[in-house]
Amino acid sequence: MRRLLLAVLLFAPVCAGAQTIPWGLDALMQQMAHVKKATASFTAQKTSPLLTTPLSARGVLVYRAPYYMRKTTLSPVHEVFILDHDRITMSGGPGGQTQRFSTSDAPQIAGLVTGIRAVLAGDTATLTRLYSVGLRGTEGTWQLRLVPLDARTRKIVKSITIAGSDDRVTGIDTLAPSGGLTRMHVTETITTDAH
């Protein structure tokens, strides 16, 4: 009896690891890592301390594991933002010019998007290197709050809150230190390697 108890105590975590981890950040990230492709439409409401009314935007998101992410804004202005490995490409927008730079050229902009990509890719290492991470909720409705560790990034983004259900992202809220808030609702279609 005592030996059985010992065996259970010793091996239960191992077996549980192989089967079911108690739900938490690692479990969520493992689940996210299975997503190989995702496309989504989004609508966003941007509030700005400069403005009395929010600005609305809508567009499409594309993710391909583990390094490619594209956000295409269709309205009010057509704008494309691509993060591929460490390269960022921004085109469209009011200036009309295409800009290409690396994430380290503009760490502030990079801070806005690398966290989101790390969540989509289930890349715990990158995520915890760049942000302090807080997870709330349950597997069915979770909320991941990312606070940038880099001081320069904190000047333009206070926190990013990603909401989701299982391995799907349902919303991304970005809060600026000035009080501006961008609320993005996401409707996702995903392909995982399990399928």
């Binding site: 301390p49 202005v77 000035s178």
Partner: peptide, 20 residues
């Protein structure tokens, strides 16, 4: 009007300091 357009873009967090 141009500034308003800029505030709708991803550059908004940076421009909200300089536009005023």
């Amino acid at each position: 009007t141009g500034d308003l357009g800029l505030l709708a873009t991803d550059l908004a967090p940076m421009l909200s300091h300089s536009i005023p």
